[in-house]
């Protein structure tokens, strides 16, 4: 379980969260919804310890989010950001950049589940559409086999068909906790739990 207890957070003296509490159950898909600027992406950064609350506590599977536990917490997470600019040319180089080169078969399996042929793994990013690149990044991150998968606006560059394919993959994941931030109604409705910000 991921637990937010009485979180208060200000950016530039403007409150983003005031005494915010929420629980994210394991092996479920929890989606944070809301308009831009409400703190959807910030929630994902709070879980990773990249943004630290001024008040309150966060615990991931019982581990309090602090400097001592941060490595142990992050080792349970996979993070899929939206529209990231990568300094590598293709999926194979991306895997090298992340330092795990032994999971090619698993990556190709996830690629195939998301409607990407094998050759996309080595195809240059600039020869792919935004949606194809996003699905490849999702396949690489899922192959990390982390228990908690954080997805920031996962459908931002996907068309309706690709969104459906991604949702199918997410639904078929076993024993995974998905935490997403989205404003796409189709994606939000597919979640087991919706937290409106």
């Amino acid at each position: 379980m991921i637990e937010f207890k009485n979180i208060s957070l200000n950016f530039d003296n403007k409150p983003v969260f005031v005494d915010f509490s929420a629980k994210i159950e394991i092996n479920q898909h929890t989606c944070f919804a809301g308009a831009s600027g409400k703190g959807k992406s910030t929630i994902l950064k709070l879980i990773q310890g990249y943004v630290l609350p001024q008040k309150g506590e966060i615990a991931v599977h019982g581990l309090g989010l602090n400097a001592e536990n941060i490595a142990a917490v992050r080792s349970q997470l996979a993070y899929i950001p939206q529209n990231i600019h990568l300094p590598v040319d293709n999926g194979s180089d991306l895997v090298k950049m992340l330092g795990f080169e032994s999971k090619h078969d698993l990556i190709l399996d996830y690629c195939s589940q998301m409607g990407l042929e094998k050759e996309f793994y080595t195809r240059k990013f600039d020869q792919m559409s935004g949606g194809q690149k996003q699905r490849l990044i999702v396949a690489v991150c899922l192959s990390l086999e982390r228990q908690i998968i954080l997805m920031d606006e996962p459908t931002a560059s996907l068309d309706a068909e690709s969104t459906e394919e991604l949702l199918k993959v997410i639904r078929n994941l076993k024993n995974k906790t998905i935490v997403s931030a989205s404003h796409n109604p189709v994606w939000i409705e597919s979640a087991d739990k919706i937290i409106n910000l």
Binding site: Y50, R74, Y79, I84, H85, L86, M97, L98, L150
Partner: peptide, 13 residues
Amino acid sequence: KRELYYFVLTNSG
């Protein structure tokens, strides 16, 4: 490019 730093740090550890 903090997003890139976060992406690699979380996913690579």
